[in-house]
Design a protein around this nucleic acid. Sequence first.
RNA 1: GUCCCCGUCGUCUAGCCUGGUUCAGGACACCGCCCUUUCACGGCGGCGACACGGGUUCAAAUCCCGUCGGGGACACCA
Length: 487
Amino acid sequence: MSTKVRVRFAPSPTGHLHVGGARTALFNWLFARNKGGTFVLRIEDTDVERSTEESYRSVLEAMKWLGLDWDEGPAIGGDYGPYLQSERKDLYREWAERLVSEGKAYVCFCTPEELARKREELKKQGKDIKYDRQCRDLSPEEVKRLRDEGKPHVMRFKTPLGGETGVHDLVKGDVTFSNTTLDDFVIMKSDGFPTYNFAAVVDDALMKITHVIRGDDHLSNTPKQIVLYEALGVPAPAFAHVPMIMGPDKGRLSKRHGATSIGQFKQDGYLPEALVNYLALLSWAFDGATDLFTVEDLKRKFSLEKVSSTPAVFDYPKLQWMNGEYMKQRSIGDRVDLVVPHLERAGLVKSPLDDDTRSFVEKVVEVVGERLKVGEQIVDLAGFFFKDEVEYDPAAAEKFLRPLHVGPAFKILEERLRALEEFDETTIDPVMRGLVSEMGLKARDLFQPVRIALTGSRKSPGLFEVMVILGKDKTLERLEIARHKFT
RNA sequence: GUCCCCGUCGUCUAGCCUGGUUCAGGACACCGCCCUUUCACGGCGGCGACACGGGUUCAAAUCCCGUCGGGGACACCA
């Protein structure tokens, strides 16, 4: 038995948790659970400017909602803490100074303005944008003098001037980078915080991370990190770079395409288990034939070998379908809870639901049934139950309510329905079907007009159920209004 | 511009490593039929792909090279 697997998800709290980040977190989590390993959550808040408390809370909340529980990290601690990089500043400083004293890194006094200017210059000449290593060979005396003067400075790593660095990636295979393409990159910023590449290496080493699973946008950072591990004299973890998630236009996934943050999906009425299942299937497949996996399935079946190296387009329709599959498994109570916020937001029900309203909503959700795939759809699917006036789909109304037979048919129907003492499916059914055959119509010739008169749409829950929930009075009223309006 | 990654139905993918069993399988979406004297569900069926060009081989989606296309990285962001 080799050493115990330890993986980590290391988001920076600079925004909400995104589907891309969530998928990375999920793969790490699944890998850990599959191997009986440890899943660490580490917060990379070294960018003081952009990190916010709010993002931090939002990320944690999204993780919890998805069910991605961490074994070590914020709120619960662990043997390798602290788990916020901002609380580990001394550690990075210590390690960085050690590299400097060993001659593996150096202090650099170039100002950001100077560097930006030089970069512009290089860019104009069409040359490689690289640091010119101006401070690499400053004498120790010079360095001491400038530091004593309090001149702002960063620390840079002395990248090997030649040779190449190979990455043995568990997803991409062997990738080699020429060291000349590496730069003398910054490891400590002038504000005393470490840069990403340095902090990640120090922490992964200290936290005994065995596998780094992350987005493949980090692949080109990896050689830099590997040379750091070597300089620090600590073994590098295994790497697995998973492909990114793209938008439908194959570009970067953005709000323009739809929801991108986990919180947004939650708010739209998606189920966490559906999102987890869907995300797991982006660049990973078990047998290419199975789509639905419980979390337990995923834990049991996940493996890095089956992660593909091709990027995946986020397909909203498939997610919706999948959410619908999980919706079927939820109790009526769950679905009511899911739907209420959307009805509320649409102004269809009022904040604290009284018992009558709640049981009405319950009936509505019941008849909407499997048509409801995502919580927010309740408004389109069943809004007409709550509104005083029907909003007709113009094309549908024109096609089904305008025809000549509808007026007379409605009139008779209204009379017969009015005569009903009990207004339920067993009494409505014979009235409707009877009228159809009497008038020599096809069922849809009467049913569709009635449906549109009552709901405004050509698609709705079963007609009789709709009528029952609406009740006799509203049903008659809507029939009448439609008759006057269109015939 | 330089470096790196990727290229199977519209989309997610199986197959590729270990070439023949594949005129390429599943799912979502779309279309049609059946079921239902309504909507939907369900059942059945259809449409639909190996980026292109060379090479290796008796045989290539599978191996090699090139082209094109997409993406990523080149910061005192992570």
